[in-house]
Design a protein around this nucleic acid. Structure first.
Lengths: 410, 410
DNA sequence: GCACCATTTGTGAAATTTCACAAATCGGTG
DNA sequence: CACCGATTTGTGAAATTTCACAAATGGTGC
């Protein structure tokens, strides 16, 4: 049977479309071919019933995000990755997916793409599976050609991206022209997102990340590159088409990295959204700054996503530098620590918590699991020791700043 | 009579003490000779009744501060400066000053010192005044010699002071050795005080300032120098012997400058108190930083005296630099200003006042003379526009910082 | 053990803040 | 001029904070 099937494909196809139509003809069912990131490569035009998942895929030229998510959660994509045979997929009405059969297109275990066959009136049988598997092998050689072409182009894009990131290209119109060559439309607004892993990013990890980025429909990623443990991308928020799009994307992203690939510990930072492409350099530097701040932040504070969220932390670097230059310990705070040490008390921490809770005794005391009056007493004590009025906004600002810098400076 | 008197002094005196004794002998009254800064130069040892002001002057080797103050307020010193004749001074029991006669020692209207004659049992007469005036002329030549010697020494000190200020001398023991040559004791702790006038400091102004510094007994001034519009001094707080001594001194100083010499507009800044003389450079830089900050502070904020009071303003320079480098206007605050502009409202100012009053609605509203609820309404509005939670300590810190920097950056 | 001091906790009244609601005001618009 | 929405002010009850006082706890030195 397999032999019979393999003979079927002993011809050449002028295009992937023709190839899709050919399979469709043989199996009497609609066929869709995707690349490794679930972007549509070709689909059969066989007049046949089609489910809504397939329609959306064709319309959007990519598999809808929630379909991909579902296929992962159901274990379908993992099993396509694991085995070289085709997989039968029962109907999943929830996402408009009719029952179908699928196979991964692989080259030495590397995923190049997928072929999907929708089960129409005719039930797909055991021998249809064999046909599909042979088709997958045939497709591999075809896709590889496409891939090498893409790789060439990708290299050019990456280089250009670095030039943008470093500010080597400045003229807005030059950039616009170049962008039009590669993309149907330029991003309206875009921000640089930087991801930082704990160790240099391997080829396989990079693929996985690319997969997640490409399949996300919260953002559209124009450029993407990596260097050492960094991944840098230029993303336009799509859904919703503002900052939140990026936030949602990153939230998903971190979860999915862990869920699907068991990758934890990845810092992320995003620069501001710019509408001018000449500002990519700024956005990049801002994203890096976010990561820099996050890395210094104490564990209990949840990391920042956006540069504009940094607040005073935007100045952290300059402040810490200045502080170290003067190398002066804050005399009052030092006195407080001294006191704590000698009297076995926790006034410093109490002050810090008090300030972090905006001087709200109740919340501060709750956070430390102590009585409100205890908190009040301690704060009064602190005021005596450091000889400062803790109701004065500037004193509070100065102290909280000092304490926050201290936290970072370790 | 004047001729007769002048013949009296046609001899030479081996020392100022001998000179004082001589006058005392002639007038049958105790005599005290002071330099232009009311430091004791010589006093007669004639056995005679003496008032408490004279006793303290001799014991302290300088006229007590409150005596000087009183003599100024009573118009006695000004009249000594104005006229070349001697002045009769009635008793001022309040400060233990018996009635006396005095004359200024001058050289071309420049004050070199003073001669005081205490009125004992014998009432001082018209012809005694003439004797005193001739004595003053004779003293002038004597004092001038002392002064030129002092000037030599002073030049050496000033040069050394600059070396200390610039950190040119570093070794603590070298400094100690040099200090012992000039002063009976080194300061226990000392701080650099810098004064900055609006225009370069003239010789006469410098003299006046030196006068105030020297006669103040709140601090002991070890070094003093000037350059352009700056006066720099190294002062040890004496009464009280901590920071407050310097604060009191400066408070007095500013008042007296205005009261006695009609000099207004003088910025002052003080570095930290150090016990090591090698840290003078630090203290100097800190003092300059205080002045720098004060100059940028909005008028309604009262200027800082000490470096350690600066709080976050210590970082102002680094912050402003960083801010200008990024040259990014705070997007939320800009949006708020925009809103104000378009709707003819005062939300930005309301926010600023609110933050400066540490989020206290009542005080903030009072300060703006509006109803509390209006304030609350505005703040709610602000929260909507800038999309930030104004109960979050870090948001408040960031905003107040940003606003304060804005104020300074104009 | 006891006295002493700093610290913590408990209690309740007084002061202050917050909040919802309504009425008044104001600027611009059709 | 009436109307609309945004803003301001007024009112009072509910919630929260502050404060004074007292009692309990705990460690230290004699």
């Amino acid at each position: 049977m397999s032999q019979e099937a393999s003979r079927l494909f002993e011809r050449s196809f002028s295009s992937l479309e023709e190839f899709a139509d050919f399979i469709s003809e043989k199996l009497q069912a609609p066929v869709t071919i995707e690349d490794s990131n679930h972007r549509l490569l070709a689909y059969s035009t066989h007049e046949e019933h089609t489910d809504s998942a397939r329609v959306s895929t064709i319309i959007g030229r990519r598999v809808p995000e929630q379909v991909i998510n579902k296929l992962w959660r159901e274990g379908i994509i993992p099993s396509l990755h694991k085995q070289n045979t085709s997989v039968k997929i029962p109907e999943i009405a929830e996402i408009g997916l009719g029952s179908r059969m699928a196979v991964a297109i692989k080259k030495k275990q590397e995923i190049l793409g997928y072929i999907w066959v929708l089960e129409g009136e005719r039930a797909l049988r055991e021998d249809d599976a064999a046909v599909l598997e042979v088709a997958s092998e045939k497709a591999a050689t075809q896709l590889q050609q496409v891939q090498t072409r893409n790789k060439e182009e990708e290299r050019g894009r990456q280089e250009y991206f670095w030039r943008l990131l470093t500010g080597d290209v400045q003229k807005e119109e030059d950039i616009e022209r170049q962008m039009r060559e590669w993309f149907p439309v330029s991003p309206r607004t875009a921000a640089v997102i930087v991801l930082e892993a704990e160790e240099p990013i391997s080829e396989s990890m990079y693929k996985k990340i690319t997969y997640l980025v490409t399949t996300s429909q919260k953002v559209k990623c124009y450029f993407q590159t990596r260097v050492q443990q960094l991944i840098v991308m230029l993303a336009e928020p799509v859904y919703p088409p503002d900052r939140e799009g990026i936030r949602w994307f990153l939230e998903d992203f971190i979860v999915l990295l862990k869920e699907r690939f068991q990758i934890e510990q990845m810092e992320a930072g995003t620069g501001r959204l710019y509408s001018s492409l000449a500002s990519i350099k700024n956005s990049y530097e801002e994203a890096m700054e976010v990561i820099h701040v996050n890395k210094k932040l104490p564990a209990e504070r949840k990391p920042f996503v956006f540069y504009h969220e940094l607040g005073f932390y935007r100045y952290a670097e300059a402040l810490i530098e200045q502080k170290n230059k003067q190398n002066m310990l804050h005399p009052e705070l030092e006195a407080l620590k001294q006191y704590d040490f000698r009297h076995n008390t926790e006034l410093f921490q109490s002050l810090a918590v008090f300030l972090r809770h905006d001087g709200n005794m109740k919340k501060a005391s709750e956070s430390l699991h102590i009585h409100v009056n205890t908190m009040a007493y301690r704060i009064k004590r602190v005021e005596e020791i450091i000889k400062k009025d803790l109701k004065d906004a500037y004193e509070k600002l100065s102290l909280l700043l000092e304490i926050s810098l201290d936290e970072m400076n370790k």
